[in-house]
Design a protein around this nucleic acid. Sequence first.
RNA 1: GGCCCGUUGGUCAAGCGGUUAAGACAUCAGCCUCUCACGCUGAAAACAUGGGUUCGAUUCCCGUACGGGUCACCA
Length: 485
Amino acid sequence: MREKPVVSRFAPSPTGYMHIGNLRTALYSYLIARHGGGKFILRIEDTDRERFVEGATDVIIRTLATTGITYDEGPGVGGEHGPYVQSERKPIYMEYAKKLVDLGAAYYCFCTKERLEQLHEEDATGGYDRHCRDLSPEEVEKNLAEGKPFVIRQKMPLTGTTSYTDSVFGEISVENEELQDQILMKADGYPTYNFCHVVDDYLMGVTHVVRGSEYLTSTPKYVLLYDAYGWERPTYVHLPLLMGKGADGTISKLSKRHGAVSFEDLVADGYLPEAIVNYIALLGWAPKGEMAETEFFTLPELEAAFDIAGVNKSPSVFDFDKLLWFNGEYIKKLDFEHFRRLALPFLKTPLPAGVDTDAALRLLQGRIGKLGEVEEKCAFFRALPEYEPDLFENKKNKVTLDLAKQVLEAALPVLSAVSAWNNDTLYTALLSVAELLACKSGAVMWAVRISVSGMSVTPGGATEIMTVVGREESLARIRIALEKL
RNA sequence: GGCCCGUUGGUCAAGCGGUUAAGACAUCAGCCUCUCACGCUGAAAACAUGGGUUCGAUUCCCGUACGGGUCACCA
């Protein structure tokens, strides 16, 4: 018996931004499809008119495009199961809802919102009392003829249990008496998620339903729908949640209070899409076997290696430190031209005329975790920071204020005399200063570096920094230092 | 609160009855070095808990604790 080809989908609702948790769901769903050589569909779930956000669909499409997650069917690319935006599929749902009523698995409900609110006040845990479940056909016809507003509810079995097998969590069972007669069609004629996703998944031939584990306990209700229609149930793949760590160390569901958690925010902060994808792929999934120690994956490599069996059950905490490390590694691997092109926009304004921007960026490439650090790390190239003379003191290199003064006094004429201003000549020149003063070369380098940078920690050594800021500025900065000493 | 799910170092995680319980990030130390960083070497650090089952449990079963999810005319 042959396996059916895998068809999976990503079905976000357009909320205006792409949360990193949603992106991971999209990624896993995509990987399951591609690993199985199957199809991947994008579907927009916009049946909540009140929460509709203009342009939100574009954010989703853009994000998928920049991460390289391609889909075979969906908005913009079309396909044989369109349209792929639920608001454009509206007539389909009423048709299928009526079919369900005929099948005896759903019913019209004419209860007003006021009555529902009253019910809730009387018993907050009771839920809907199934008032309209057993209305006679005549009564229903009469109400419909009068034009009374209605919803369509799912008729849940009152006894027994419903079970299904999730490919990550295993068998899930719930008592049917726990299930509410949930609303399938709203009074505004739009379907609820509970209903339309089932209809669409069926109509679009989706074999693998991949989504967050918040749906784990409501899935029996969906399974009942498949059964009522006589449709084959899909394979369910529920994913563990993504958590965030708060400033106080508490763990909770990843949200804005944990910092930039939308994909576009991270990119704007200088994280590379490839690094983000690589990192989130590993949050909740780990490769098996001999691949278990591998950490770096390109998208195609993930497509080859991904396997549902490697998906974890427990929630994972999003760790910005590790993302930063991953990102730094990806930045290091960039060829310089590429890095340069990405880094330049992160400078608020161009560096001063005398400063060698390319040289500065070369220094930075191996030392930053994200492109957003470029500006701050370049600040001292723009202007010498304020600093106190005692910055010159350094135990390891045995530098005292007095020695620093001697070094700089000796270095000034030597550096002025250097014919070509480059790393090698400057290095040789400074070594001669060390020889002249009979001190460690480290002491000379230290004093010079502090004087030209005004900082104890810099993205490069003394000569490298002088190369970047240029001859005039370097000498000027050394003179300023001498005034302080 | 009812129901469902989860629990290996601070974090991500391997493990799928017998292991010195991998690896990575972060942390710390040493080395290297024209500082920092990179790199290299090393260190500290974990099976929530109580019962079973078993010759033997991190691994299987039950309870407890803790954490999470869910109970909408939201998805």
